[in-house]
Design a protein around this nucleic acid. Sequence first.
DNA 1: TGAAAATGAACGTATATTCACTTATGTTTG
DNA 2: CAAACATAAGTGAATATACGTTCATTTTCA
Lengths: 191, 191
Amino acid sequence: MPKPRDAHKVEQIFGAALRVVLQEGFAGLKMKDVAQAAGLATGTLYIYFKDKEALIDALYVHLKQAKTSQLMQAWQPGDPFPVMFRKLWFNFLDISLREPERMIFLEQFARSPYLSPATKALGDQMLKPVEDLLAWGIGQHFVADVPPALLVSQLTGPIFELVKLHFDGKLVLTDDLKERCFQMAWNSIRR
Amino acid sequence: MPKPRDAHKVEQIFGAALRVVLQEGFAGLKMKDVAQAAGLATGTLYIYFKDKEALIDALYVHLKQAKTSQLMQAWQPGDPFPVMFRKLWFNFLDISLREPERMIFLEQFARSPYLSPATKALGDQMLKPVEDLLAWGIGQHFVADVPPALLVSQLTGPIFELVKLHFDGKLVLTDDLKERCFQMAWNSIRR
DNA sequence: TGAAAATGAACGTATATTCACTTATGTTTG
DNA sequence: CAAACATAAGTGAATATACGTTCATTTTCA
């Protein structure tokens, strides 16, 4: 049998692509640069991905899944709603802060011409657990009775902005400040 | 005298460019498409703008200024803080909802390779009045004592998300729902 | 009629993609 | 066990394509 496709090499390409995006911006992502950053020939990329669109699409799904699985690690089935919400919020913020490039890439991808309906749907689906949690909070009368999807957007929006401010060096997010931001988030959704 | 440069034609180009961005995404903006959408030849664009970068830059400034002047129309010097805040919030939302393309373009531009320091500065300048208003609210003990720039981000973030949801057809923003969202915003920043 | 506006085919450049060839690795065979 | 083979991975120069920009020519208007 011939040498099997090295699954690790896909990771290698993803890492390279992310580094290029980080440095050159989403619009300036070139296949040659990705190959170079991954220590491969350009042609090799086309062994692992049909074309540029497929590569970016796969990278999106990869990052989104990684983020989601990290997010769900804070999940403790027994916790009461306020505790669960607190854990989730801080987890979401910390994950985003740890790798701001990821978050920025994901946001930019979501409004790029590469986004296919299928991928878009997949991305939305990943926030379903968060939506469910909030729906549960509504049922328990902890949370304002508005559509859960709306609640999700009102929670992620401020977090995205926080991360951007932090990434752009306009704000240092101390623990104290994080706590105040959490209070703002909690006050905004609580009934 | 020759035919003067038709100022209206610049508007025409701006409108076309915005429509193209809306349909193709910021990254997929092509000069030929803009020309076609404006009912002009590609060469004509270069009579009005030095190059693509200049066109996009001018469009950004145009939209940003239009939005700023609209935003400030709600300004009534005598109002107490809570009234002022309410007017500003609704005005910001309604302006953004009326022309979601504008808002989406402005957001995408801010993370594009076209962003120059000068234009960036102009963009930041726009939110200065909002920041000042919030700083005033902090001084009057209406608002939580965190950096005003942070407050601004925590207000605009949710509004951006609302507009995107609305634009993507995932949510119908009734007056009642708007009111609830305002309450969420107010609860998040109030002391 | 002259000067500027407008045109759009042609050009140059950047970059995505291909493909003939080389290298690596597992399988078969003597 | 090693030599020959088969198959897929890997390469990168060459090619195709897409797109910004130019410019010789035509149109418009005072």
